[in-house]
Amino acid sequence: MRLMHYLRALRGIMARELLRFVHQRERFVSALVRPLVWLFIFAAGFRSTLGVAIIPPYETYILYEVYITPGLLGMILLFNGMQSSLSMVYDREMGSMKTLLVCPLPRWYLLIDKLLAGVLVAVLQAYTFLLIAWFYDIQAPLEGYLSVLPALVLSGLMLGALGLLLSSFVKQLENFAGVMNFVIFPMFFLSTALYPLWKIQESSELLYTLASYNPFSQAVELIRFALYGQFNLYACIYTSVALIVFLIIAIIGYNPSRGMMQRKGGPAA
């Protein structure tokens, strides 16, 4: 009976997230336009200037577009994680978060449900992007489209948990833009999404170190290998550990006795 309650709540939260997503078509379009602009314009423009040597999982020379495709999948997940986090802050300000938090289920479970719902939407976007890329002749082996699914889910969870963590500490909506700039851009540019690690190392040892410890790099590598049917154990462990750490901090942040709901100075009673 209790288990049914948990499952029904999960279904309800996921259904709501999907409905909201369907109702906000512009969100879907803009979520797709961003990586597609990078793919069609940025990658095409840089194709000749950024030569990529043969590195695993690739077995041959590849076009730059092919190299950045997993990075752009990561970008979709990253933006989605931040988007859900933004909507958490919005929900909190608008009050709809309260509806969720006063239901008789543990808060950690509700947060994980929220996270899963966000990932569901992100994965749908990621596959739509892959489909468009397919027609643009960026094609991975067929089995890669299946093996990339767990990698997308794990990376999406990790980035969603990061968003959740941020949302538990960001006080107001207007502060969020700053956080986004400080999180999204360094995370994205200091990663293997746009250029391989050795390329970064050529320019700066410091940037190389930062990029290799960036959890987003590991998420991108996990996706990159999975898209070609290979398993990157190190990236998987790194991403999983980051997920656990982010999630634990986020859950502490949302704990009623210690968390942000209390630190905000309270409502206008």
Binding site: Y6, R8, A9, G12, T99, L100, C103
Partner: peptide
Amino acid sequence: LTVLQNLHYHASLHG
């Protein structure tokens, strides 16, 4: 969301 969708969401949170 519609009235029904809002209410179904709440119902699912309460199992």
